[in-house]
Amino acid sequence: MFEARLGQATILKKILDAIKDLLNEATFDCSDSGIQLQAMDNSHVSLVSLTLRSDGFDKFRCDRNLSMGMNLGSMAKILKCANNEDNVTMKAQDNADTVTIMFESANQEKVSDYEMKLMNLDQEHLGIPETDFSCVVRMPAMEFARICRDLAQFSESVVICCTKEGVKFSASGDVGTANIKLAQTGSVDKEEEAVIIEMQEPVTLTFACRYLNAFTKATPLSTQVQLSMCADVPLVVEYAIKDLGHIRYYLAPKIED
């Protein structure tokens, strides 16, 4: 028996919004430690890794490890039927071929349930090595989304250059060149507005705008985003999900032809 309950459906809606542009379907691996999802996008350029800890749920029970392959378009249809403040419960029997998603209004007067067929997905799990990153940048998630959106107008690619002075995002195309520099913030009143750079050595990497823009669909989940970079390895873009876990996106760099 698997049962996981969250106080507010809005969190699950935001999580789904954060992955459904990249993935058509995905396997949710459930164990007593929580729910994990790891999947590459169709073109195998990026990888999404979602971790939801069992202690972040209002109620969590998972008697046996369970892998639930879900069509994310179908799940989006179901979540559209929930009000943001509804409680949401996901339930499945061991070895079931369906999952039930139930919504309850705060006053318990409306209860709806949706049974969704599960899929058998060929899952290819990738081992992600531990990396000592050359640069780790923490910045407001909204600012990162704005930069990715703005620079996508000028080129398919963004060059991210991180030094101890700051981080520079550049795009160059037919229109010309765009550069956005962010300096590390001095003292800030609000932690969520800070730009913090931890640099071991400077790094310059090139990435496809369209994936960065897809990652920023996670912006509503978190006030801050963390970018971890190292020469010649994938960028890690991480959004914390408060009290519940995190979503990490890995993006393969572009290299000189």
Binding site: H44, E124, L126, G127
Partner: peptide
């Protein structure tokens, strides 16, 4: 010109 690499070339199958 830059070439897009694949994520699976960095991470090994488990």
């Amino acid at each position: 010109n830059s070439k897009q690499t694949s994520i699976s070339s960095f991470f090994k199958k488990e």
